[in-house]
Nucleic acid binder design. Structure first.
Length: 451
DNA sequence: CTAGGGTTAG
């Protein structure tokens, strides 16, 4: 696919230009959409704001939020008028870029220009606060909107708040809000139920999730693939594979087809059980059904092989995905790096660690944790401590596992006084506030065992 | 199918 073809399709197609043209038909790249944008800017008379918005929403769906914002800026400079939808998309972009403050700044601009925010504007901002882990403020904003009667919340807005509550572990509060919806005129639909069902599964309350699922379907709300995915995931996670299989059959009987995500849940579950062969069969089945394995599929397989110590097989999968033009990401590589470290192949781990950075990937705290453990276990505490400094210099905050690895490594290498000093510094950083009592106890046990 | 919400990997 090249840009010209999209451009031509845009100019000469008799059917109206739409998202699917750009998004799905020819799987074009962002550059193609940008080319269309440039052509649109040069057209006389200029296309409507509607058409610009359509195109930019394609770019947003490709998760190119900064690009989308740049295009809006360019449009403004070219004198294309703004509208509530364009403002909403911009606010959403800022929120996705973790800059919810800019989102609120845009809300102020919007008021100044005499626009009235829509429900979508407010829902986007509430979601932005949730994305920024500011759920308390999200709930406060929602309450303020209700209190001041600034809007009449719809299912999406309720759902956004319910999701926020679930995200911070307040599933029971989320259930209260869901029940409130049931009692009112804005009845919950499958999205709101699914959020809570998923949260219950993650809270290890799979039976409660199943009960809510039964209640939902009892009210005539049909489960969709995401509802089923959450339940299958929950059942698999707690060793209830037979029920998961039953759920899978049930969903197909209901006419809901499994997606890549559904199969990925199965692939991952097989891998965690150590039966990568079954995982491979699941991948074959998804391909047979015309579904295309994605980065998550291959990463799960790689991790599965690494867990079994079959690094060669993991490397084969990595090569296979690269051949299919799928770019491995940091999660993919973390499995391999961890696999090398666990097999005491620290040189291979270090090499890969360097290689991915040369490719422009940013190691995260999990990468560093694997490397640190590998370095200690290969008898190189000095390199480990150097890497610990490096990770902080590069802005990767150590977590409780990092400290656990360091304390353990130092103690084992007769550096107990250093370990104690490190522990004191952890204490002074008040890391315990963000950890839990269990981890803190572990630190003490680790120290007292070796001191 | 011009704007906002829910599922999958380390």
């Amino acid at each position: 696919m090249n840009c010209t073809r999209i451009g031509l399709r845009y100019y000469y197609s008799t059917s109206p230009f739409n998202q699917r043209t750009l998004l799905f038909k020819n799987a074009p790249k962002v550059d193609d959409a940008l080319q269309v944008f440039d052509e649109m800017l040069q057209r006389q008379p200029p296309p409507s704001i509607f058409q610009f918005t359509q195109l930019i929403s394609v770019i947003v769906k490709m998760k190119q939020y900064s690009t989308a914002l740049k295009l809006f800026k360019q449009m403004r400079l070219m004198g294309v008028p703004v509208s509530i939808p364009t403002m909403n998309i911009s606010i959403n972009c800022y929120c996705r870029l973790n800059q919810v403050a800019y989102g609120f700044a845009l809300l102020a601009t919007l008021f100044k220009q005499g626009f009235s925010p829509s429900l979508a504007t407010y829902s986007t901002l509430i979601h932005g606060l949730v994305l920024a882990d500011r759920v308390f403020e999200a709930v406060e904003l929602f309450k303020k909107l209700l209190r001041d009667k600034l809007c009449d919340p719809d299912q999406v807005m309720y759902g956004t708040v319910i999701n926020g509550l679930c995200k911070v572990g307040h599933t029971s509060k989320a259930i209260e809000l869901l029940t409130f919806m049931e009692s009112g005129s804005c009845k919950p639909c499958v999205e709101q139920y699914s959020v809570v069902i998923d949260s219950l599964c993650k809270d290890k309350m799979v039976d409660h999730a199943l009960e809510l699922f039964a209640k939902m379907t009892g009210k005539g709300v049909l489960a969709d693939v995401i509802t089923y995915n959450s339940l299958i995931h929950g059942l698999c996670n707690f060793g209830r594979e037979t029920e998961a299989a039953k759920m899978l059959r049930n969903m197909e009987e209901e006419g809901v087809s499994p997606t890549v995500a559904t199969f990925n849940i199965l692939v991952n579950s097989f891998c965690k059980q150590g039966s990568v062969k079954d995982a491979e069969l699941a991948v074959q089945e998804m391909v047979r059904r015309g579904l295309c394995p994605n980065v998550i599929t291959y990463s799960a397989l790689i991790d599965g092989y690494c867990l079994r110590g079959e690094i060669d097989e993991a490397e084969k999968v990595l090569n296979g995905m690269t051949e299919k033009d799928l770019a491995p990401n940091i999660i993919t590589y973390n499995s391999l790096i961890n696999g090398y470290c666990k097999k005491k192949q620290i040189d291979k781990a270090r090499h890969l660690f360097q290689e991915i950075q040369d490719k422009g990937l940013i190691p995260d705290v999990i990468t560093y944790n694997s490397m640190l453990q590998g370095l200690f276990e290969s008898g190189n505490p000095a390199a480990a401590r150097e890497l610990f400094n490096e990770m902080q210099a590069k802005g990767q905050a150590p977590n409780i596992y990092t400290y656990r690895i360091l304390l353990h490594g130092m103690c084992k290498n007769s550096q107990c006084s250093d370990a104690l000093a490190l522990f004191r510094s952890v204490e002074s950083k008040e890391l315990m506030v963000v950890t839990n009592a269990g981890s803190l106890t572990w630190l003490w046990i680790c120290l007292t065992n070796f001191y």
